[in-house]
Computed example of a mutant assay.
Amino acid sequence: MADQTQVGAPSAENVESAKVKMRARDVSVYYGNKKAIDEVSVDVFSEYVTAFIGPSGCGKSTFLRALNRMNDTIPSARVEGTIELDGEDIYSSGMDVVQLRARVGMVFQKPNPFPKSIYDNVAYGPKIHGLAEGKTELDAIVEKSLTRAGLWEEVKDRLQDSGTALSGGQQQRLCIARAIAVDPEVILMDEPCSALDPIATARIEELIDDLRGRYAIVIVTHSMQQAARVSQRTAFFHLGHLVEYGHTSDIFTNPKQQRTQDYITGRYG
């Protein structure tokens, strides 16, 4: 599988000056005896939004969950290879998984606000991680997070209302606010717009663009148009393999692999 490593590990001359935030090498994920991911190597850069695309069941969400050890919650799951965050192996025995998931936050496909107030949804993480010394500091974190998530102006007068009473698009932005409230370094988004209408989707895409540069962002999407709009790097997965990884413009206009070309042009998927 040496060719897969070459595909996923950009050479020094084509990464420009971008900083590698997460580095995955030869990562395989198993569910019992079934291999869902086969020796995938990818670099995630601080300055970029990275999109994972590919047909349903190709392994892109499985690989995304490996980046913050969400697969640990599945008893049959096993991960091989190495994934590093700032050079530290996230699967090492000394890694605090709770702290890892604060540093590498996750926004899921379906909005999942806690059955709490809007305020408490955002304040929950900073409270349990001890990021605020008092209510004034906590208030500031909540306001800043909701502002960055593009939601503050819509909810500032009803912070005690239930988060579940918001619209779907607002709930997803609340979940993004909740993720960034603990000051993460990476945000993983697993098809964050798939349950939303086009207007709410556009708001989330604008938000992703606003957040780029503050956080390394990785998004799994079924929409090639969305990947083209929001990302700077794109990885194409097929049948558990990483077929091609590079600058988004190159993947969509000048792919190196025939399988990528076939998927982009709609011959399968």
Score class of each variant (00 low, 15 high):
I217E: 02
S231C: 10
A235M: 02
T234S: 09
A165Y: 08
G169L: 10
S167F: 03
R212Y: 11
Q172I: 09
L159R: 07
K156W: 03
R148T: 00
P192T: 03
C193N: 13
D183T: 12
D161C: 14
Y119D: 14
E154D: 10
L138M: 15
S194P: 07
Q160L: 15
S167Y: 04
G246C: 11
T147V: 07
V243N: 10
N121M: 11
E244F: 06
R214L: 10
S162P: 02
M189G: 07
V142H: 14
L188S: 00
D157C: 05
L188R: 00
V230I: 11
N121E: 11
V122F: 00
A228D: 09
A227E: 01
R212A: 10
E154N: 05
L188Q: 00
H247N: 03
E206R: 13
L188F: 00
T201G: 06
D120L: 15
M189F: 06
S162I: 02
Q225C: 05
E185G: 15
I176Q: 05
E143R: 14
P126E: 08
P184F: 02
E206W: 04
N121W: 11
D157K: 07
P184W: 01
Q226H: 13
L151P: 10
E143K: 14
I128Y: 10
G134H: 07
L239D: 15
A177H: 00
Q225M: 09
T147P: 03
I208E: 04
P126G: 12
G169Y: 04
N121G: 12
Y215F: 12
I199R: 12
V182K: 15
A181I: 05
Y119F: 15
V220W: 01
H247I: 08
Y245H: 12
L174I: 01
A195N: 14
F236A: 10
L188I: 00
V182M: 14
I204L: 10
L196R: 04
I141Y: 08
I180T: 02
I176R: 06
V220M: 01
D209K: 12
L196G: 09
L196V: 09
Q170Y: 01
I204H: 06
R173C: 08
L131D: 07
V218I: 10
I176H: 10
